[in-house]
C-alpha cells in the first residue's frame, strides 16, 4: 500500500489561494493520517492536523525546496503532536482543570471505520514509543525509502535501519501477545 500523496506539490506552494488549495488537497490526507496514527491517547487528530496547516501556511517562506515538503510538513506535525500530547497529559493529570476539548465523535479516529483487527492493531501501535511508531508508519504504511525517512525524521540513515529493526520486533512481539500474527489482518 503506497499511501503517499499523489498530487504534485511543486507548484502548489507558489502562493495564491488556488495554489494553497492544491497544497491542502495534496497533503491533508497524509497529515490527518500521521496525526491519527502517531497522536496517541487523548490527541484529537483533526485538531492536530488543523494546527499543522495553520503553522505550515504561516511558515511557508522557510520552505526553500518544494521537494522537501514531506520532510518539512512531517517535522511540523511532530512538533504539533508533541504540543497536543502535553495538553492531553494536562487534561488527564491536573486536578480541577477543565479544558474545552473538541467533541470526540468528530475525530477521525472515531470517523474511520475500524474493524476489530484494526482496533487491536491500533492498540498494539499505541504501546510503542513515538519514535518507533514513526518509522513503522513511514516505512511500512507509506513505503518510503530509508533515506527519505532519515530526512523526514532528521536522523542518520543507519539509525533509521536500527530503529526500524527494533520497532518491527517490538511491534510483532506485542501483536503476537495480542493474538495477531500478521496472517489474519
Amino acid at each position: 500500500m503506497d499511501a503517499r500523496p499523489r498530487t504534485p506539490t511543486l507548484t502548489a506552494i507558489r502562493g495564491g489561494s488556488d495554489e494553497r488549495d492544491r497544497l491542502l488537497d495534496a497533503w491533508l490526507p497524509a497529515v490527518v493520517r500521521w496525526c491519527a496514527h502517531l497522536g496517541g491517547p487523548g490527541v484529537d487528530a483533526e485538531d492536530a492536523a488543523h494546527d499543522v496547516f495553520i503553522v505550515a501556511l504561516r511558515r511557508l517562506d522557510r520552505l526553500y525546496d518544494p521537494s522537501q515538503t514531506a520532510a518539512w510538513l512531517f517535522g511540523i506535525t511532530r512538533r504539533v503532536l508533541a504540543q497536543h500530547r502535553r495538553r492531553a497529559w494536562v487534561r488527564r493529570w491536573v486536578p480541577g482543570l477543565t479544558i474545552d476539548s473538541p467533541d470526540p465523535a468528530r475525530g477521525p479516529a472515531a470517523q474511520m471505520v475500524g474493524s476489530e483487527t484494526s482496533e487491536r492493531v491500533r492498540a498494539v501501535l499505541a504501546q510503542l514509543p513515538v519514535a518507533e511508531r514513526q518509522v513503522l508508519l513511514l516505512c511500512l504504511v507509506e513505503e518510503r525509502s530509508d533515506r527519505e525517512v532519515a530526512e523526514m525524521l532528521e536522523i542518520p540513515h543507519g539509525t533509521v535501519k536500527s530503529r526500524m529493526r527494533r520497532a518491527r520486533a517490538r511491534f510483532l512481539e506485542i501483536a503476537a501477545r495480542s493474538g495477531l500474527d500478521g496472517e489474519d489482518a
Binding site: M1, A3, L24, L28, P29, V32, R33, A36, H37, A45, E46, A49, H50, F53, I54, L57, R106, G107, P108, Q111, M112, V113, G114, S115, T117, S118, V121, R122, V124, L125, L136, L137, L140, V141, R168, F171, L172, A175, L180, D181, G182, E183, A185
Partner: peptide, 26 residues
C-alpha cells in the same frame, strides 16, 4: 516486514469527511 505491513494495512485511512472538515477549518 511483510507480517508487520499486513497488520498495519488494516489501519483505516483518513476518511474524506474528516479531511474535508479539517480543510474547511483551515
Amino acid at each position: 516486514d511483510m507480517r508487520a505491513a499486513r497488520l498495519l494495512a488494516s489501519l483505516p485511512d483518513a476518511t474524506p469527511a474528516a479531511v474535508h472538515r479539517v480543510r474547511t477549518r483551515v
